[in-house]
Amino acid sequence: MTDSFIFLGREIPLYGIMSIAGIIVSAVCALFLARKRKNEFFDLLCSSVYVMIGAFIGAKLLFIAVSFEDIIALGIPMENVINGGFVFYGGLIGGAMGLLIYIKQFHMDYGLLEIYSAALPLGHAFGRVGCFFAGCCYGIPYSGFPSHIYTETVGMTPLNVPLLAVQLIEAACLLVIFSCLLIVFLWGKKRYLTPILYIISYTTVRFVLEFFRGDKERGVYWGLSTAQWVSIVLFLSTCIFLLVRSVRNAEKVKEEDKKLVSDISSNGV
């Protein structure tokens, strides 16, 4: 299976094409969702600039952090480190930070978080298909369905060995997550549920699928991969946020009830 094609004399990787396709479809989806919430197109565009820059910085920083020992040990030149190497979770966290900075700086509605979290899994699914074409993020040796044998690829992907197509499995899970988030966004009664559901569902899926990944060179610490540790941190952080928010809401309701009772008593009703 080819992992690239030639365009204008330059070899363009299929991974890149799938990434572009993913960005386009999730951008169209975000536009559609923004219209539903009556967000302005201009605001969506401005926020996407912050998200892009944040995602790039986050993905690159996390890559350098998890690969620092290998970069030093293998003597990889800085130019190669800058050219290649991004980690999705770093991009997710960096992009979210970029969006929050935009919201705070221009006093925007947090509803933008809902739009991005609903559209992101769709683009991510395309990216995972790109990983399948490139042969990276490969699965454990497995000869049933779905599996694939790579005969030529880059890096340490085992060749001529049937590998579980974990990239396609993750892409399918992401499409399911996207479908569910779309339903919640369009017909859900509670606001701001979409980003929370996205974090909870994706971190769970990613944690489980990591056990079926064969590329252990990414780093394993105390039996779990870097992505699994990040999944745990994000999952727990979201649960703590929900707990704190529900305690605060409960206190707020109590205060309002007390005020109502005292108003009623003072009016002599």
């Binding site: 990434s19 690969s67 990983c131 490139a134 990276c136 060179e217």
Partner: peptide, 21 residues
Amino acid sequence: TVITAIAFFTCGLCVICAAGV
């Protein structure tokens, strides 16, 4: 930005993996 970044930058751990090989 998208066209330039994707054409210029390569995939995930490919740099490390290739160097390791």
